[in-house]
């Protein structure tokens, strides 16, 4: 795995030495014009992806899904079913790629690991008092350590939006670096901004850089638990951020839109955004993920349609 942290010698390291330096840096990033950003995202949404390109995109999208269940009602049984589906999404067609990961709460990591054992599927765990993040740092770190100890390959943390919106950027930064440390060398860290709560695109760009400076392996839009989750526009903005971050530091960071992506058509639009913003370097599941649950079945039905020429139906894919 490539290094994902800035070395102490990197010039950008200076900007994280104090709250005021961090603020100056983040507020010095180029502004975002909302209408222009949304216009660009919408315009890429009109790309027409057909035939072979569509088949490729559907398989790619399936391979990028973090198949997710984050309910109070989750049980080991439910998680085992999810794991089985992640490994073989379409039991009738073994050429269907596995999903990238299953994404569960920390106490379900053990069950999830068992369910995907022997496959390529990773186990991702939300942590840090997901989804609100309103807990003491000790508690959050304990949450992370539990998940890592149970074998989580990836940790999806939430940032402290309250601190971010109050302008206490260094607090957010320190928390991310602490979580990153708790992940150790075995787990990749996804940093969730809850873009719907950050409310402005300027904030999303700042949060993206903040997360990347603090060592995020992935930046992720949302928890899926608020009104506005992943959108083409906020994902495009985060793609621009990882592109620019790599240009400045040489470090590549992944992107994960999560929540609200339900159809193949939507997913393909996101892949077009990736393709035309950051290009093929990000077009695999090490660098781009979809946080989703119902999306997978729609992708599978579309896949069946392409293979057979007939429209499929919900009875021909498995319920979660």
């Amino acid at each position: 795995m490539p290094s994902t942290a800035l070395t102490a010698a990197h010039p950008l390291k200076d900007v994280t030495t104090s709250d005021s330096a961090l603020r100056r840096f983040l507020h010095g990033l180029p502004g975002v014009d909302a209408v222009g950003l949304e216009g660009r995202a919408a315009s890429l949404g009109t790309r027409s992806i057909k035939t072979t390109a569509k088949a490729y995109a559907i398989d790619l999208a399936i391979s990028m899904v973090d198949l997710t269940t984050l309910e109070g009602a989750d049980t080991p049984g439910k998680v085992r079913a999810l794991g089985a589906k992640a490994v073989h999404p379409d039991p009738t067609d073994r050429t269907t790629p596995a999903t990238a990961a299953v994404c569960v709460y920390p106490d379900m990591v053990t069950a999830a690991k068992e369910a995907v054992a022997g496959s390529t599927v990773k186990v991702a765990s939300v942590a840090t008092a997901f989804p609100a993040g309103r807990a003491a740092l000790d508690v959050k770190l304990a949450d992370v350590r539990d998940a890592v100890a149970a074998g989580a390959d990836e940790i999806d943390m939430v940032i402290d939006r309250g601190a971010f919106l109050a302008g206490r950027y260094l607090k957010v930064y320190d928390e991310i670096t602490a979580v990153k440390e708790a992940c150790g060398t075995s787990a990749r860290l996804k940093v969730i901004f809850e873009t719907g709560e950050l409310s402005t695109y300027d904030n999303i760009r700042r949060a993206s850089w903040l997360g990347m400076l603090a060592g995020a392996d992935f930046i992720k839009t949302s928890t899926g638990k608020v009104a506005v989750n992943a959108t083409p526009a906020n994902t495009l903005l985060m793609l621009e951020a990882v592109r620019d971050f790599r240009a400045q530091t040489g470090i590549q960071v992944g992107v994960k839109p999560a929540g609200g992506i339900r159809t193949s058509k939507d997913a393909i639009k996101f892949l077009v955004l990736v393709n035309e913003t950051v290009g093929e370097d990000w077009l695999d599941n090490h660098w781009f993920r979809f946080g989703a649950s119902s999306l997978l079945n729609d992708l599978l039905m579309q896949r069946q349609k392409l293979a057979t020429g007939r429209y499929s139906g919900p009875d021909y894919v498995t319920v979660d």
């Binding site: 014009d33 909302a34 209408v35 222009g36 950003l37 873009t195 719907g196 409310s199 402005t200 695109y201 999303i204 009104a227 506005v228 526009a233 906020n234």
Partner: peptide, 13 residues
Amino acid sequence: HPTGSLGASGSSY
């Protein structure tokens, strides 16, 4: 000049 728009959630980005 673009105005942006305040969406239903009050958040427009």
